[in-house]
Design a protein around this nucleic acid. Sequence first.
DNA 1: GCAGCAAGGTTACC
DNA 2: ACGGGTAACCTTGCTGC
Length: 818
Amino acid sequence: MAISINLIPIDYDYFDYQGRNYAKIVGRTDKGKKACIIDTCDIYFWAILKPKISEKKIKQIQSKIEKIQVNKAGRNSRVLKTEIHNKNFLGKPVKAIKIFVTNCKDIHEISHEIPMKYIDKRREKDLKFITKYIIEKKLKPLKWYKIEGEVLNNSQKFGGIDNSIDTEICLEVDKISELQKQPEFKPKILAYDIETNEFEIGKGEILMISLVGKDFKKVLTWKKKSNKSFVKNYKDEADMLEGFIKEIKNYNPDILTGYFSDGFDLPYLRARAEKNKMKLSIGIDNSQPSFSRGALTTGKIKGIIHIDLLRFIRNAYSQYLQSETLSLNEVSNELLGEKKHDFNPFETLKKGEVDWQEFYEYNLQDSLLTYKLAEKFWPDLLEFTKIIQEPLFEISRNTMASNFEDFAIHNLNKFNEIAEKRPIHEEIGKRRMQKKYEGAFVFQPTPGLYENIVFFDFSSMYGSIIVSYNLSLPTKTKEKKNTHQGEYNGKKTYFEKKQGFIPELLNEIIKKRREAKKAYNENPTPILKARSNAFKLIANAAYGYQGFFGARYYCIEAASSTAYFARKHIKQAIKEFKKESFKVIYSDTDSIAIELENKTKSQALKTLKKINNQLPGIMELDLEGFFKRGIWVTKRTGEFGAKKKYALINEKNKIKIRGFETVRRDWCKLARETQNKVLKLILTKGNEKQALEYSKEIIKKIKERKIPLNQLLIRTQLKKPIEEYKSIPPHVLIAKKMKEMNMPVDIGMLIEYYIAESEKKRALVRDRAKLPTESGKYDINYYLNNQILPAIENIFKVFDIDLKELIEGKKQMKILDF
DNA sequence: GCAGCAAGGTTACC
DNA sequence: ACGGGTAACCTTGCTGC
């Protein structure tokens, strides 16, 4: 029976039937029903011909290629047909043979059989079937379509696929058309979180599982019975796992989301199911989650998008967060203003006196936070998916570099381009051996307290340079005439003036970003904000992408030249401000700070306008803001001003601190808070008097041992396995100790310790380091000389005050008391 | 045993 | 393997006396 439905595609999967690839796409209908559609598309790759091959030769090659057959994995795979097309490759016109085959998996073997005498390159062999499908059929994820097709109901076709899939509708696609009207789509999200009694995957038991959806809160457990309404009791772990499967089927979510669930919850569930000799059949075809190997485990569920929110946040948003770690607790606190429950499962379990009711509440809260975060990030996930056009599953895990690449791949048709291949292992090796290039310019500041500061910055500087100077692999040329001249490794490199597709795509993104930003300012909705942000992030990724060794369109000359033009323009702008007799205080990469002195804001803006008139292409210098006051300090060694370290106060008394120990998580709280207070007092008062009084108090407290331990803890991240360290810094020694004590130690963990006094006179710092739980007296001298003094000494040096004398107790009364 | 320096290491800035 | 380079500043570890 032929019917028509309105559908939003969400999950993209594929299967083989009679040797051919089929896409199996699960989505929602406009009636809220889950539906599955089956479709196929042309599968092909390209053989790019060497230049100037005669028509006759080409015909011969074609007929040879058309005879290729390969037997593999029980498939008799063959070339279906070939076509000759005029295409572009790396921006240059080429003649290419489009080779149609039956199955993606056989492309590699078939391409091996191609006689290469007249063929230059074979391309688009490494695009995933789903990517090809989306491009070919224009069925883009998370957009609404009218799907016309044949209902599969108890059908023998595709091996009775409709019976094995748990959706209300199953269609074989006949026709796809994008809907004019694109109503808002709210996916059904279910968040989950497990609690276990052992850290290592599968080693311990799963004690409980919490689930949170819309008007849906549950904790499943086989532990102590509870009369709380959200707790569901089971007889044992296996029974609970069965319950978990049932709950998921009943709720029928589009998205199942966890926090670090790729690395913990889902593999743990799978491992425990195995231990209990049962199947974790949560897929819509009752399949178990599958895991891809690689640097990071990735858990996939058929028909449901499994999203590990931690990964999305880490890849897309971590640089914009204040949180020092990406723990659920800190991220929720920052983004939702809500925290995890104050409860320590492992401690409690160790002690043996477990308050199970509290434990259940704690478990539920984790899922609740995850659910709220998922709702918060939904607009972002949606916009990224729509822009990049890869399925949500990939989008939620992709790094920004691969997002940029996927965006390009999905837009190549506009340029009639054949995609470049992904670099193979040797190529990556070669790229990584290449000489690094010179990066950004950082202005050497003069230490001091400044008043009336104006900050300027280039908007999307690197992106706008790539566009304005046309810097990319396809536009790189050996021709010198009529080109943009960049630089790499001391040599000039040249780029065509005719716009290439990478700069053009980037230009589009930057333009759309500006539009979205404008639209957001007029109508501040979460969607518009997410859209503006998505475009901004993709634009910012373009520069890193071209310098990234894993990129298809890797071009170190373009990356190097981007930095080269950035240095050139920032220096030119500095020169222009100086020429107009402004005092330039500081500059880093794309920003410039000037002190107004006897000049006015409007004079500064006039110079800004003048500079903008001289900038090429889409480059633009913006006013970032005015600041009442700012402080720059010296380096610890030498008399020079320190770069990347300054503090500002704006006209609303808001303080902005960059680079100082205050913002560094590897300094103890005491040093950070003291420095923060000192900076704040100096910036608000305009002098150092109160800051000095405050510092004296703190120093006195330290000497009198009045500082609580939690103020003295130093936290340092373990970046690699303990054995790989060539030297043993304090945090590595502590990590070793922890391991010996059977405490969980993993790469990426923040190791906490404090420095205690020791009997040995000249002990190394690490030999004085103790775990927070170890008893000991904190080392007064260490905290004075290695934490507090370094944090505030340079600040007071700006006012000609030698703090060292103060600390050592030498009564130097000159400026101190009056 | 100690000073001086390079290397190892982490985290920030843009 | 899953953007880039610039920079500060800690501790360890080695060399040479």
